[in-house]
Amino acid sequence: MEKLYVNEIRPDGEVSTVGLFYSRAEAEKIVAMLRDIPERSACRYEIVQAVRHLLAEKDASRAQTAPEE
């Protein structure tokens, strides 16, 4: 499954992560719903790879295959 963050960027530049989503379609649906909210009309949204979660998976698999000392 994909792992994607939806980030909200406020007019003052503050970045707030909305959540972790498991498909681009789901992330885009959430963004569309957020854009419909009048109080959030000045915010921008971005969908990005959830790097923290992907790196954690790589670390976990690296730990499993690490050679014994």
């Binding site: 792992k3 963050y5 970045v15 707030s16 992560t17 909305v18 959540g19 972790l20 498991y22 959830a50 923290r52 979660h53 954690a56």
Partner: peptide, 13 residues
Amino acid sequence: VLTHGIKRWLIDL
């Protein structure tokens, strides 16, 4: 991650 200044450790479902 940060959501409105609050730390969230997002559980990997």
